[in-house]
Design a protein around this nucleic acid. Sequence first.
DNA 1: CGCTGACTAAACAAGC
DNA 2: CGCTTGTTTAGTCAGC
Length: 440
Amino acid sequence: MGPMVMPPGKKAEGPSSGSVARGLSQLYQDTEAADLSLALSASLSRAEDEELTSLSWLHESTDLLTSLGHSGLRSVSPLQDANGGREPSSSPSSSPEPSEPPYHLSTGPSRKPPYSFSCLIFMAIEDAPSKQLPVKDIYGWILEHFPYFASAPTGWKNSVRHNLSLNKCFKKVDKDRSQSIGKGSLWSIDPDYRHNLIQALKKTPYHPYSPRLPKPSTSPSTSPQQYHSPPLWPGSPLFRKNGGVLLQVPQRVIQHSSRVAAQGLFPVIRPLPLSPVSKRTTAVRSALGDYLTRGKNSLRSDSPPPSDDQQEDHTYSSSQSLNTKGDISSSLSSCSTQGSQEVTLTEVKEEQKDFPLDATPPPSQLLQRRRLLWTKGHLRTPGDTLPLKKRRAEKLLVKEEEDEEMEAAGSLLHLAGVHTGVNKNALRTCKKELKEEAND
DNA sequence: CGCTGACTAAACAAGC
DNA sequence: CGCTTGTTTAGTCAGC
């Protein structure tokens, strides 16, 4: 598992917003850049003072950093991105084969947005006054804000639906009978996973403090050129609406401030987790990297390795945060999103209380916890009267039986010393094997 | 090289 | 009947 976010209690261990910006000032000898870094400092301070949410802070800071990129720090060759922000070769002519320009340097709506589908859906839903949207409106929002998809192959809608279905962060709102929105359901953000999405958003390439930052440079005087202008998304109307300057998450997205702050989710204040990201994500992650990496590392040299939180960013499974290794039942509960989704919020919260983010529960507890989730997810549904749900409950029963087989198989594998983990592929393989066995 | 997450394609069922 | 919505499975790819 990857690194995670510092738990709330550790917030103070990270560099202060002021120190970050001061470092920026030092780093960027360019006066203009330094001014902007001070502005960033102010932004950070204000974020803390006013308890702005991660998102608002994130994008405000992002804007500032964009400005940094505009102030002479923008002469970044695509190669740098391909190199993960490393120093480009001294002469442009020595550049190898051309690669795609970084997103922030591209123009027009033809570039794919750097946000994952979960982020897009998240923003769409958060942008809705009611914080609920039918799929159709999610499509619409995405189309409106990311024109790329207007000309993209239609598969993206499938991906959106797929994401809604599989991602635990999204949940269907039980449709009010009287409220007819036509076909389909309203989709909303599961409050308990909301911060995961914020985290995911923070990990987008344009987040100035994204974790995957380049190694410190040896020469501060050359470092400015290593920083890309990070967060510009020229193809987005969000960009255009703001005079071509700002990349803004819609204002309505800004909420839950105290909660987010209480969870220590303000970026920069403490180290951000590393997590797998796409190649293109990595490509633009070098923005502001050197100093921040150095600064954070220096300030958290004694900090423990990241703990659980990052797991919660694995948005495909509500139970993955409970997983470590070796228990296929956890995987089963992961797969059974339908079941897991229906665990009541209070139950989940209680469990979260039991296992704070900064504490890694012992394996036995993990197992117990997983089983709890698993059980809860599958015992529920009485009282569901909708035919569809009824059918699904039946399906669930069948699935449960199958999954019990899987669990048994997993236990056997575990006993045999075979690591099963949460790997989807392992599950697939396992299921395949079971099927084959059944066929035999 | 294996694990993992993200994405995509596709099949299918069900509702409108 | 066609389209949309929702679910599920499978394959691929990239990062670590």
